[in-house]
Structure formats: C-alpha cells, structure tokens
Write a protein that binds this DNA or RNA. Structure first.
Lengths: 320, 320
DNA sequence: TTGAAAGCGTTACCAC
DNA sequence: GTGGTAACGCTTTCAA
C-alpha cells in the first residue's frame, strides 16, 4: 500500500504538499497539483483514515442510532438510513451504526473513543436520556423526532398539524364519527412524542363524536380495534391512521366487511401509501426530505460549528 | 478527556502497562491491574479509537453492504443488519455502513483507507464484481448469498432445496397445476443467485403442469400474474412464492375472488409469514441465524486468520 | 512483572 | 507557493 511519503517522492514534493493538495486547505500551483494528483492515481494512494483522524482530530464519520422494526415501518427506517448515508457520502463522510439497544452507554462509548464527529438520533422517546447526554457532551447532534425538552436541533413533521389536516379532510367528506388509530407507542412512559402530538392535534380538531385508541398491528388486533371503536362511537365513518403497520390489515378488514362508508386517512409516507391495496388520500410524512434535512444540518454543523436550527415540516395532503 | 498517560500517572504505572491491562495481552499482577482499572474508572478513560487503529493496525470495525428496499423486504434486511450489529458489538466491534450504490468503488475506498477490518456483503448478483474485488484484496469477507463463482465464504439458504420442499408440500395437498412466483430479480443479467436456484429446484420437482413467472410486487402486478398463469396452466391449484413483497396483494386477491382451491406456500422468513392475513404453511428463510452465522464467521476470521467455511442452511417447513 | 521508546501515517504549524 | 517537523494517542518490541 502506498503511503503519503511514496506519493511525495513520486511527485517530487514534500508530504505536506501532498496533504494540502488533497485537502485543498492551501493554495497550490497548478503544476505541482497536477503532478501530485497524477502520482496519487499512479500509486492508487488512499489516505489512511485512522492516521488522518488522529492527526486531524476528526473522523469524518457520523454515528447513527436507528431503530429496529419488523413490519412495514422498516421500509420507512430503511429509506431514512439510506438517505442519510447518501448525504453523508456526498459530503465525504461515513456512517457508523450505533445499536439502539445499548442506550445511552452506546453513545458514551462512541463519543468517548472519538469514533464519530457527530450523531443523528432517531426514534427518541418523549423524554430521552440520550438527548440529554448528547447535549451535555457537546458533540454536534441532530434529533430526528421531537423529544419534549432538548436544546438539540430537531427535525420532524408537525404531527399535530398533520392530524388536524386529516380530520378536516374527513369532515369535508361528511364523516362524523371519527377515530384515531394510534401505535402502541402512544402509551408511555416514556412514550413517543409524535404519537402524543398527533393525538392532541386530532382531539383539538375532531367534533364531539371521536375517540383515540391504540391498536396492535396484526389482523386480530385491528379486528378488536374496529369492534371496540364502533361500540364506543356508535357510528364510525372516518379513521385517521397514524400507524403504518396496521394499514394492510385495516384496509383488508374494511373491504372484507364491505364497509365502504368508512373513509381512512393515513398519516404516512407516500411510499407506504403506494404499497396499499388501493390508492388512498393521505397526509404525507416526507421521510426522505426529513432525513436529508437532518443529515445536512449535522454536516453543516460539523463544517461550521455554531447553533443549528430545528426544522418542523408542514403537513401536506396527498390525493390518491 | 483523559489519555492513557493520565491513567498511567494516576495508577503509578507506565502507559504500556495500562495498555496491557486493557488488552489482556500480557499477564499483569492482580494488584497493579486493580489499580489501573480503578484509575480507568475514576478518570472515565476510553482509548482513542483512531490512535488504537493506527498503532494496532486494525480498526475493530466491520463494513456492511446492505441493500435498500421500500417494501416488506425491508423488514428482513433490517433484521439481518440488526443481528449483525448485535453480534459485532458483543465481540467488541463496530459496524460501518457501505452504500451499495457506490458499487465496487465504495469497497475499494473503504478497504484502501483501512476503515474496516472485514466486510459482509449482502444482496450479491449472480456474478458480482464486488465479490471478486474482495477476494483479490485479501481482506476478510463473508457473502450473505450465493454468487456463482467466488472463493469467499458464503452463507445462504439452500433455495433449490427450499423450492423442492415447497413443491412436495403442495403435492401432498393434491395440487396439480403449480406455479412459482419469482421476484423481478430472477431476470438477469446479472440476476440474483437465490432466484435462479429456487427456479431450478422448483422445476426439478414440479410435475408436468407447472410454470415459473416473475411478478411485480403491486396489486395490479399480482392481478396480471394470476391471469397470465391461469391462462397458461389451465388449472392453478398451488403457488410457491419466492417474493415477500407480493404476498399481501396475492393473499388479498385470492381471498377477494374466493379462490379457496389455491394453496400458497411462501419461501420467506417466519417474521414475514406472521404479518400476513392468516397463518400460512411456509418454507422458512432463517434470516436471523443466517445473519448471525455470517457475522460470527467474519469475526472468527478476524481473530484467527485462515480459510473460512461456507454454510448452506437446510430448508425447513413451518406449519401454520 | 514492568518500563522505555520506537513506530503507526497523517495534519497543521512554523519557516522560508 | 512549498518544505520541515512536531504533534496526535496508542501498541508492541526490546530490555531489565
């Protein structure tokens, strides 16, 4: 393997010049630059990452805490992870996975051993010790989600607004008995912020006949949910679904029972909506844009340290 | 941040002793060991990963090339990634994501800059330049899948055997017109090895009235597929499905059209089978075990360099 | 059983 | 516009 000294020798310059050519941190005459780059190509030189990190004080790697999941939600997570990786690579960084099961200790380890320059934290609880840890540690970090009390920059959808938008859409279609199907994560503690925000938005906009109820994402769970909600409301004509994994069973059951009178408005990524049995109007969760924003925000912070801004995406209704 | 010299001073020993205590690569007297460990705790010392990698010549990080996907398949991939991460961490390693979209160049970069000690390659094509690159580079690597011509250790399910098992199960239930629903990846070049193996196994075991056909994983695609296959076979009573994403639409359509005469046998992870409308007999893809085996194989190789063995899992029928 | 010191391959400061 | 060189923080050989 070629080292920087080999390149320097081949190009007839010093090692530092090679370094500067590659980093662009110092003006170099076109002639030497070309000679150096040629030598780099000839020798197939690649700077040693560990040496660079040790000397430069940064690893050009970001840490990513992504949740595990076994259902349709996995498609969303994957898309976010893929997007973050894409952005990171485009800006010459790598992505190290941090196991969510290791909790705060996993972050402490990764930060303490300087494996990463910054962290993106997904799937936070409403009050999340990891967010506090990141904030204290001072390492650049961005949260994808909205823990309730953090100084870290957050990127999220305005879920309360999304729920209100969904309810208004149902109303416009003359629904009166409306229900919100929430994921089990609504129930805390600690509980997820997005679930609570959605519930609040829903309740603030829904008419007198409404209910919020969590649902297990299985065919049996959805069956139970429908029975319970119908019993409670008397009449059920509109459902807002904030629970991707429950969508296939829900739509399947409604069709099977010929409940054409019920309108379903999911709050979900369009990618998920497209996988469903038939097109549905839905309030979009712009997962790709959110992931991209989180990654760009973190990388901006790595380049220009300083305060970073949170970003709350505005909900948008997508007609089938 | 505490450095190794700080710990050494606090414990009244030399830096090398601290290093040896932490690595266990040299016998240390219990007394000094305790003093050192106490100092480590007191100071919250964590070895700098970059310095360790530079001096030690290994990063304790493995690279992972995992595919992106937007449907149910994502759940499988996630579980594999999660399992690999878990195994790696248990054996004191980290996992770096390698973007599959960067192809062979991504691997060259990561290897050349010594970011990782080894690589796990998922989702290989039947003839995959990345496998060849890994083999030539000499870096420890394991393939999760079966490219046709590689000297690398591979971990995979015996898909030909799985297909035969599925067909035999259909036969036992008196199916005669049988079809294999394949993913678009069957069609090459390059095409996926698992798809071709499954097709071969299916054809070798199926009776005279059978067909193999790829299917788009959408409701419309499955509808077309059913029409075409029924037309071709005349009578259709059994379907082997090697295409997770197509399962929900397939089962939905069959139920809608009251085709109770058709038996469906998926080849899929049990985790996916459990998400379906109703329990189905299926040939299991043991994704967790496969991922675990791949990770353990790679880590074994990192600890004891030498030839590693491939592992072909035996198919198993799971009754609903 | 322990210590001293020579690397590991960069980056970035200080000269020229 | 370019070169020399001291860090960076650890691992490991050599010596005792």
């Amino acid at each position: 393997m070629a080292r920087i000294a080999d390149v320097a020798r081949a190009a007839g310059v010093s090692a530092s010049t090679v370094s500067y050519v590659l980093s662009g941190r110092r003006p170099i005459s076109p002639e030497t630059r070309d000679r150096v780059l040629q030598a780099v190509r000839d020798l197939g030189y690649r700077p040693d990452a560990a040496a660079g990190a040790l000397a430069g004080g940064r690893t050009r790697t970001i840490g990513l805490v992504a949740p595990r999941c076994d259902d349709l939600t996995a498609a969303i997570i994957q898309r976010m992870v893929g997007t973050i990786l894409e952005v990171a690579r485009r800006r010459d960084h790598d992505v190290l996975l941090i196991d969510p099961r290791e909790g705060a200790e996993g972050l402490r380890r990764v930060i303490g051993s300087r494996l990463v320059d910054g962290v993106i934290l997904m799937d936070t609880d409403e009050t999340d010790p990891r967010a506090g840890l990141l904030e204290l540690s001072g390492i650049p970090a961005v949260v994808l989600g909205s823990p309730s009390d953090t100084g870290l920059p957050c990127v999220d959808l305005d879920f309360a607004g999304a729920a209100r938008l969904a309810v208004r859409h149902l109303r416009a279609r003359n629904a009166d008995g409306v229900a919100l199907m929430s994921p089990p994560e609504l129930i805390g503690p600690p509980g997820k912020g997005y679930a609570r925000h959605t519930a609040h938005g829903f309740q603030s906009e829904a008419g007198p006949t409404h209910t919020v109820r969590v649902c297990e994402p299985t065919w049996a769970g959805v069956d139970d949910w429908l029975a319970a909600v119908t019993r409670e409301l008397g009449t059920l004509t509109g459902i807002v679904v904030q629970h991707e994994a429950a969508l296939p069973p829900l739509l399947g059951l409604l069709r099977r029972e010929h409940r054409d009178d019920v309108t379903v408005v999911p709050i979900c990524p369009s990618e998920i909506a497209h996988l469903l049995e038939s097109p549905v109007d839905h309030v979009e969760i712009p997962v790709t844009a959110m992931a991209r924003t989180a990654a760009e925000t973190l990388l901006d912070q790595l380049e220009h340290p300083g305060p970073a801004e949170s970003r709350l995406f505005e909900p948008r209704l997508v007609l089938a």
